[in-house]
Design a protein around this nucleic acid. Structure first.
Lengths: 159, 159
DNA sequence: GCGAGATAGTTTCATATGTAACTAATTTGG
DNA sequence: CCAAATTAGTTACATATGAAACTATCTCGC
């Protein structure tokens, strides 16, 4: 096998240095760490927690609103909402002026859970960002913004 | 509802500004964009492609080696390898000195697919990073390294 | 050299997920 | 008004996933 010559010619894909891969591994590890805050104690899944997070911030959203804000698809939202309603953590009411739409909000029980988890999540974020200088935190924000904008354009015109 | 007073007291978790959430959304979008390069044309899943990527770089790895390098668990590797072997894209041979271990490598067919996808993946990475200045690219690398190190420590001692 | 434990990898089972088809309600154009 | 198209949300189906149990092989200590 004349592997040296071929290696020189061929584009080299080193997974350990491939940004999309590193991003994915990092993101999964962070998500897992956050999930540990609420899955053990409250049996919440990631979609469930995300829904509670947006409802904790804004009451009366429709499922569609929630889907947009959490970047989840409507099926995922429908299922997670069903389970949250079942657990009496979320209240679902039919919209007065449009019977297709449901208005979602945290129940008192849901609010109590939210109030317990939100500070923990924010604290974990602090600990994580504590690894960075103030400047790096600003950079990270700017960089993520730029990457999100770029990937957004790619999504529209695949190729 | 005395929402103003309560909001001031309560820690504010705004999903749109929560770094773990933004990281997750960005990472998923990037992964989806990459996946489009190989799922349509070759019917590869993400785990399958990751395995081909490490085998394209290093032949003769065991399933365990692959699992470590791709940050996947052994079940996922076992299944994806089975499907790759079935499709004759990967060759599995029993290790000579330890019959528990299988030695994995790309077949000629697998190599051809790898040689087609790898440049596309690298190109997509280039396009993505093209949104950043050279300095920002260095920053991103440093920042991801620091965050990975920090989250690694949290994983060991959860709490 | 043999029994206890460790390791590589697979299988099983229960659950999660995505796509597409579906129902119900609303809007729109004639 | 009312048929056709649109929209909100759910359900069904097929596939993906993760945890735990399992098989086969190997290593270590005696």
């Amino acid at each position: 096998m004349p592997s040296d010559a071929k290696t020189l010619e061929r584009a080299r894909l080193d997974l350990e240095r491939f940004v999309p891969y590193k991003l994915s591994v990092l993101s999964n590890r962070v998500s897992d760490a956050i999930a540990r805050l609420y899955s053990d104690r409250f049996g919440l899944t990631i979609p469930e927690w995300r829904i509670m997070a947006v409802l904790g911030q804004t009451s009366g959203l429709s499922a569609r609103d929630v889907a947009v804000r959490t970047a989840m698809d409507k099926v995922q939202v429908s299922r997670a909402v069903a389970s949250l309603v079942e657990a009496k953590r979320v209240i679902r009411e039919v919209d007065e002026s449009d019977a297709r739409v449901s208005r979602l909000s945290l129940s008192a029980r849901g609010r109590a859970i939210y109030d317990e988890i939100a500070p923990l999540a924010l604290h974990l974020e602090d600990v994580l960002l504590g690894a960075l200088t103030k400047e790096e935190r600003r950079d990270l924000d700017a960089i993520m913004g730029k990457l999100a904008a770029r990937i957004g354009k790619l999504d529209v015109i695949p190729g």
